[in-house]
Design a binder for these strands. Structure first.
Lengths: 217, 217, 217, 217
DNA sequence: AATGAATGAGGTTTCATTCAT
DNA sequence: GATGAATGAAACCTCATTCAT
C-alpha cells in the first residue's frame, strides 16, 4: 500500500532555481503556457495537466520547479503585481508634489496603459487578485496598495478636509481597480476611449479633492 | 465550484417549473441550502453533494429541477440581481426628476442597504458576478443595469455636457459595484461608515455632474 | 484552477453504512478483493486501483464506503484482530484457574488454529500489525494484548516469583506472535507439526513458570 | 519504499565493484545517507531522491553503483546480517562445548548488544527483514542462521531428546529475533532491563533443554 | 565518470451526473 | 416522483529511472 503523500506546504516559490539553459527554457515554457491559458481560457482552465500539455512538458518536470499547482498562478500574479506596483509607484514618486488632479491624471493613464498591454490576461489576473484579496494571500496587492496610498494621503491630509485618509485610499484603489478591470473584461474598447479616461479622472479626483456635498434625504 | 468550460445559455432556468407544493418545497429547500453554503463556506463549497446533504434531498431530485449544478448558483445570482435591480429601479423612479446629487445619494444608500442585509452572502455572490461577467449569463445584471441607466441618462443628457451617457453609466454602475463589493468582502466595517458613504457619493456625483478637469501631461 | 483538496481525516470507519443490498454486496466485494490481494500479492499491492479492478467497482464507489485508501486495510486488520482477540480471550476465560502449562497449551493451540485457517493472509496481516505497532495505530492489537495479559498475570503474581508481569506478558505475546507469524510465512508446514507446537509450549511455559537460571558470564 | 512487485534475484549486488577511491567514497556516502534516513525517518522515507540529496550525489551516479533503488536497502540489510551473523557465530564458536544454558546466555546478551548499539536503525531493518522474509533475498539471514544452528544442534542431539533439531533451531532463531526486534521498536527500555534478558534466556533455554511437558487438553 | 534535467506511469481522491429501483 | 448507488473522467502529485550534456 503506497503511503498517501502529504501536501507540500513549503511555499509558493519555485522549488529549484533552474540552473541550466534547458531548465530555464522549461520554466519559461511553463509560465508562457500558463499565461496563454489564463488569457485564453480563464483561470479555471489552468490545471497542471493543461499547462503541461500546452508547454509540452511532463508533470514531473512541472513539479521540479513549482512546489504545487498554485505556484504557477502565483508566479503570474507576482509578475502582474510587480508591473502594476512599479508603474504606480513611479507615478506617485514623479508627482509627489503635483496637485491632486495632475497626480490622478497620470495615475489613471499609467494604470490604463498597464492594462492595455494584454487586456484579457490582466482581466483574468485582476479578477484573481480581487477574488483572493483579503487576509491570506502572500502579498495582498490591493491591501498593500491601499495601505501605502493611505500613508501618502495622510501626509497630505490638509487637502482631504476631514475625510479619513484610509477611506479615501480605499475608494481610490478599489474604484480604479474595479472600473478598469470591468472595462478590460467587458468593454475593452473603453480602454482607448478618452471620455472613459476623463470620466475616471473626474471620478477619482472628486474622491480626494471634491467639495463636500451631502444633500439631505 | 470550478466554472465549466462553456455552457449553453439555454437551460439555465429550472427544467420544470415546480407546480405542486412538494416540488416547490424541494426547490425552496435546495435554494436555501445553497444560500447557506455560499454564505457560510464560500462558492467553492457549493457542490451538488453539499447542497443535497444540507437540503435533505437526493441528487436525483436535484436534477429533476436543475439542469446542472451551476443552475442553482445562477438562481441565487438571479435573486440577488432581482433584489438589487428592483431596489435601484425604485430609487430611479422615485427620484427621476431630482437633482443628480440627490439621486446619487439615494442610490448609494439603497445599494449599501441591500448589501448590509447579508454581507457575506453578497460578498460571495458579488465575486461570482464579477468573475463570470463578460459574455455569459450574469453580466446580464451589470450590462442591463448599465444599459438602462444609459438610457435614463441620455434623456437627461443636458446635465452631462458632452460626456457619452453610456460611458457615464458604465462608470457609475461599475464604480459603485466594484467599491461596494470590495468593501463587503474586505472591509465590511466600511458599510457602516458615514465617511465611506459620503466619499462614494462624492465620487459618483462627480461622474455625472463634476466639472471637466483635464490637466495637461 | 481546481482547488486542491485536503486529505480527509474523519476516521477509519466506512463513510456510510451500506443500506441497500446492492451496496452491501459492493462493500463485501471490496473487502474480498482486498483480502485476496493482500493474501496473494502482499500489502504493497493493495492500491485503490487494484482493489477496484479486482472487485469490479469504480473508484467513486470505493470512496462512498471508505474514507480513504487505508481504511480498507484497517478493516481487514480489524477483522483479524477481532478473530484473534476473541479466540484468545475465550481461552483465557476458560482456563482462568488452570495451571499455567495447561493455559499455555490451549493458548498456543488456539493461536495456531487461527493462523492455520488462512496462513498467507494472516502472515501478511500479522506483518502489518507488527509494522504498525507502537504508538499510533487505532487499536494497537499487540500492545493491548500485552497490557491485558499483564493485568491477568499480575493477579497471579505468586506464580511468577519476582518476574515483572509486564515483562512476562511482553515475552509471551511477542514470542508467540513472532514465532507463529514467522512459521506462517516461511515454514507453513510447521503449523501442522506437533513438535513445533510442543516446542512453543515449552518455550512459553518456561517464561511463566520456569526455574530461575542465571549462569554467570 | 514500496516493495517492487517482483524483482530478479540477480542484480542485487552493486553493478560494479567500486575500485577507485572516489567511487568508494561515493558508495560509502550513499550507504551512510541511507543508514541515516532509515534510522531517522524510517524505510518509507528512503527514496532515491532522499538518498541522493543527503549523500550529495546525483541520481545518475546512484545508478552507476546500484542497479535499482532497492539495492541500497539490501546493502544495509546485508551489513546488518553480517554484523549479527559474525557476532553470533563467534558466540557459538566460543561456547561450542558449554552447557546449553551458558551458550544461550551469551547468545542472548550478544544479540541484545548488537541491537543496543543503534536501536532505531535495527528496529527499522528488523522490520524490513521480517516483512521481506520468505522466498526472497533477506530471509537468507534468518533461514541461513536457522540452518546453521540446526546443524550444530544436530551434532548435540543427545541433549535434545526427541526434538527435531531444525524445529528447535527455528524456535530459537525466530523467538529471539521476534522478541528482540519487537522490544527494539516498541519498548527499547526493555533492552536494558535485566529481567527482560533473564526472561529471554529462560525462554530459549527451555526450548533446548526444558523438560518435556505436554499436558492433556 | 558525473550530473541533474526530464520523463511518465501510477497512485489517491473528488464530484457532476446517470439510472435502476 | 424520489432515491441513492454507481460511475468515471479528471485533478493533483510522487518517484524510480533514463539520458543528453
Amino acid at each position: 500500500m503506497a503511503a498517501p503523500p502529504h501536501r507540500d506546504t513549503r511555499g509558493l516559490r519555485p522549488r529549484k532555481e533552474p540552473q541550466q539553459s534547458r531548465s530555464r527554457d522549461l520554466v519559461a515554457a511553463i509560465e508562457e503556457a500558463a499565461t496563454r491559458i489564463v488569457r485564453d481560457e480563464g483561470v479555471d482552465a489552468l490545471t497542471v495537466e493543461s499547462v503541461c500539455r500546452v508547454a509540452g512538458v511532463s508533470p514531473g518536470s512541472f513539479y521540479q520547479y513549482f512546489p504545487h499547482q498554485e505556484a504557477v498562478l502565483y508566479q503570474l500574479l507576482r509578475r502582474h503585481a510587480e508591473a502594476v506596483t512599479t508603474t504606480m509607484a513611479a507615478v506617485l514618486t514623479d508627482h509627489a508634489t503635483s496637485p491632486v488632479p495632475v497626480l490622478v491624471h497620470h495615475a489613471v493613464h499609467a494604470f490604463l496603459d498597464v492594462h492595455r498591454a494584454d487586456p484579457r490576461l490582466h482581466a483574468a489576473l485582476g479578477h484573481v487578485v480581487a477574488a483572493r484579496a483579503g487576509p491570506g494571500l502572500e502579498d495582498d496587492l490591493l491591501a498593500t496598495s491601499t495601505a501605502v496610498l493611505g500613508q501618502l494621503l495622510a501626509a497630505r491630509s490638509d487637502e482631504l478636509g476631514d475625510r479619513p485618509p484610509e477611506v479615501v485610499a480605499f475608494l481610490l484603489v478599489r474604484g480604479l481597480e474595479g472600473v478598469v478591470h470591468a472595462a478590460t473584461r467587458d468593454a475593452p474598447a473603453l480602454l482607448e476611449d478618452p471620455a472613459f479616461a476623463a470620466g475616471l479622472e473626474r471620478m477619482l479626483v472628486a474622491v480626494v479633492a471634491g467639495e463636500d456635498a451631502r444633500p439631505g434625504g
